[in-house]
Write a protein that binds this DNA or RNA. Structure first.
Lengths: 236, 236
DNA sequence: CAAAAACGAGAGCAGTGCTCTTGCTTTGGT
DNA sequence: ACCAAAGCAAGAGCACTGCTCTCGTTTTTG
């Protein structure tokens, strides 16, 4: 139904995409704060008022960029595991680090888009329903690795006990996602997920300046530690 | 010399402080993006151009707020350990968690100021030299706990080996700070420091919505895990 | 006491997000 | 095939922003 729906709809989606592309360009050049609708329109050779037919407000444009960015990291994370060949394709730790480094590579390549989604929320407050699903993709990729390790019997459950409230949240989350994992593992998984982006944010936002120079080695080491914390056994 | 240096200088510092106070008020109400110099001047009953005698640009005002915010968290972190009484005052893990929860409490009480310093960098790029020292205070407080535990012989060094480059960075950092700690411990300390703010950012920026409800328990659990990762032995 | 520096206020510039009105083009029902 | 309805682009305009410049006034300083 969407194939031959008239020239107008095709033009609309093309222009919408062109606007987003130009906005992404300005985002990469100057950051979200300096992204200007008028400048986008100017660059596209259209009146600024015409742009409002496609995005009712600046925040809506940003939201669209946010969704795209979440999908871009999410896809990078998902592709990281499917691209593994040889024995690494089955080793949980290798899959785990592949995802984490893919996310880091994406972040280093698109720092302003990273800042858009994992930095401070730009407008008053956002998070329309449409962002929550793409936002979960990286987390789901990580969960997938641990789930597979669990079903393969390669998961070492942590001994340390957790508060009931935390385990309860974790089990509720597992039920919602339809994932069969011990509460303690899921809880640590959420923690590792947050800590992964803590490392990335510190690196990207400059907190590691004059502190850590061997960023890649440091990151991979920390990621191995995170894998261990969720029960994936490290080699050697 | 600064005491009775004329009424003008006193007025100047008073007005400077009033500007920052009003700016902080607007920051808390609307966020950094909507902070407007003109609105601050209006609220203070002065011409907007007069404000430029005190802060040469909007970014300079923001930088001043950033420095203040870093000092505020830093002070909260430092005060957390000195306020401990009884046996907890000597237990490293108790001091560690006290610092972390103090930082979290400050962040929850001042979310927009937290976003200002640990969210995405707002202008093109900032980090004038004046911000780096206050920015280090929380990290130094954490290092202090581990250093004390080390000299008291209560530190369990991690067995896992680290890449040479990482250990090298860590030792250089330790030398610069004048702190005697094994490279592996220092490296893990930096990681824990970054991960702490990863947890806080995810909580404050809404990534835990519909994921974790028992935020406090979750945080304290994660913080205990971080303490363990740097070699502080958990009780029981 | 006079020169110099600091200060406050106003006007003004270029830029922004967003709205409203005015014409034009494509679409879809009869 | 026609014609109303809907979608669209453009321009003018409003209220706001950061920032600069000028012009009197006040305070400090030599």
């Amino acid at each position: 139904m969407t194939a031959i729906r008239g020239a107008r709809e095709r033009a609309r989606s093309e222009i919408t995409e062109a606007i987003k592309a130009e906005a992404r360009k300005q985002l990469a050049a100057e950051g979200a704060a300096k992204l200007s609708l008028r400048a986008v329109a100017r660059e596209l050779g259209m009146a600024s008022s015409a742009l409002y037919r496609y995005f009712p407000s600046r925040d809506d444009l940003l939201t669209a960029l946010i969704v795209d960015a979440y999908n871009a990291v999410g896809e990078a994370a998902e592709r990281a595991t499917t691209g593994l060949r040889g024995p690494d394709a089955a080793r949980p730790v290798a899959r785990w680090t592949a995802i984490c480094t893919a996310v880091r590579d994406w972040a280093l390549a698109h720092p302003h888009e990273y800042a858009l989604i994992y930095g401070s929320p730009v407008p008053g407050y956002r998070a329309p329903r449409t962002t929550t699903e793409p936002a979960a993709r990286v987390g789901l990729a990580l969960i997938g690795v641990v789930r597979d390790a669990h079903t393969a019997g390669a998961l070492k459950e942590p001994a340390q006990p957790l508060p009931d409230a935390v385990v309860g949240d974790a089990l509720a989350l597992g039920a919602e996602l339809g994932v069969e994992l011990p509460g303690a593992v899921l809880a640590r998984l959420v923690g590792a997920w947050a800590q992964l982006f803590g490392l990335l944010s510190f690196e990207l936002f400059g907190q590691f300046n004059r502190v850590i120079e061997a960023r890649t080695e440091f990151f991979e080491q920390a990621v191995l530690e995170l894998a261990r914390s969720v029960g994936l056994s490290t080699p050697r």
